[in-house]
């Protein structure tokens, strides 16, 4: 080993993007974008300043939420939200399973695969509220439109994750079942289902939680649930009632999360 220590070699941290042209182009592009984006922000500061008072009132409202004066509206809305959540999650799971099977490339033939993936893509791309608007126009006001909306959204979520799970399953286990001479149904129930079942239950619990949160907004467009009550409360600037509703939502979500944590832990 030669001891030719070069004196004072400079060192700088190598940049993340090697090509300097690319690097500067990216940096300047992001800067230009930020300037343009903020430029198109037309904030009425006077209005914002005016609103700060109201915002403060709203925050204060959390220290004395008003559950009482609109309790019948709140409880009706919450019960409707809960009912929509339960039915749509149950129905969504039932439909998701065949669609999820169909969207898994390793077990479904190509045409079925394309159709199922198409359904999933549409369900995922359209926000629940858009679907709800269309369905309210078709079915009329009420929880039925909300139920269909949430079921449809559940399909996009659950079927996609289920399909990915099935595609990731251990091939050797599935092959071992096939080698026994099992039929397609036997193969799915013995070779695939045990592998994906725990995660499917976990995901369903998670979706129950999401559906409850989403059900809180469907009321805005007349599709049932607590959202309508909340909207009215905001419209009338009844922040005490709004705070009460929001607190209930947060508590229910926390409870659901806790519950699903327990169930998932027991499945492991």
């Amino acid at each position: 080993m030669s001891a030719s220590v070069t004196t004072s070699r400079k060192w700088r941290k190598p940049p993340m993007i090697k090509n300097p042209l690319m690097r500067w182009a990216l940096i300047s592009a992001s800067l230009i974008y930020l300037v343009l984006a903020f430029g198109s922000f037309d904030v009425n500061w006077a209005r914002v300043y005016e609103g700060l008072d109201r915002g403060w009132t709203f925050i204060l409202a959390f220290s004395h939420p008003d559950f009482a004066s609109r309790w019948s509206d709140i409880s009706d809305g919450m019960i409707e939200s809960a009912i929509m959540t339960v039915t749509s999650t149950a129905f969504g799971i039932l439909i998701s399973i065949p669609i999820g099977l169909g969207a898994a490339r390793n077990i479904a033939p190509l045409p079925v695969y394309i159709v199922c993936r198409g359904i999933i893509a549409i369900s995922r791309a359209l926000h629940e509220i858009i679907v709800a608007i269309l369905l309210v126009a078709i079915f009329g006001f009420g929880p039925f439109a909300g139920f269909v909306t949430l079921s449809f959204a559940t399909i996009g979520f659950l079927a996609k994750l289920l399909a990915e799970d099935i595609e990731d399953t251990d091939k050797s286990q599935a092959e071992a079942i096939k080698a026994t001479g099992a039929s397609w149904w036997q193969w799915v129930t013995y070779g695939i289902q045990p592998q994906v079942m725990p995660r499917l239950i976990g995901l369903s619990m998670y979706r129950l939680d999401i559906n409850f949160r989403e059900s809180a907004i469907l009321g805005l467009v007349g599709a049932g649930g607590i959202g309508a009550t909340l909207n009215t409360a905001f419209d009338r600037y009844e922040f005490d009632t709004a705070a009460a509703i929001i607190i209930i939502i947060i508590v229910v979500v926390m409870a659901l999360e806790y519950l699903s944590g327990i169930i998932r832990a027991r499945l492991q």
């Binding site: 009425n44 209005r47 700060l52 989403e214 809180a216 909340l230 905001f234 979500v253």
Partner: peptide, 25 residues
Amino acid sequence: IVSSRSINSLIWALLLVAIIGPGIF
């Protein structure tokens, strides 16, 4: 974290529109 997650962005928007007025902000 749990409060922020529980409330849908549409509800946040509803609230903010009531407080600071409609618009992109």
